[in-house]
Amino acid sequence: MRESLNDILCCPVCKGDLELEITEQEGDDVLEGTLHCGECDETYEITDGIPDLLPPEMQD
């Protein structure tokens, strides 16, 4: 995903804003990192460029 995508993303559970932390990127493609919801304190992983924004109980 790219950083600019975060403008329209929100927490699937409480719909709060997400904070992006990048661990690895290639050009403007974020490959590894996390999206953290400040409101419900949930953290969502980005792996291989794909954010996992499933509700926590459905995550792999």
Binding site: R2, I8, C11, P12, K15, G49, I50, P51, L53, P55
Partner: peptide, 20 residues
Amino acid sequence: SEVYLIQADVERLPFSSDSC
């Protein structure tokens, strides 16, 4: 056009209101 892939549940979408 930029293509993004997102793992999410259709019952609880991770998108802001009025964004699509």
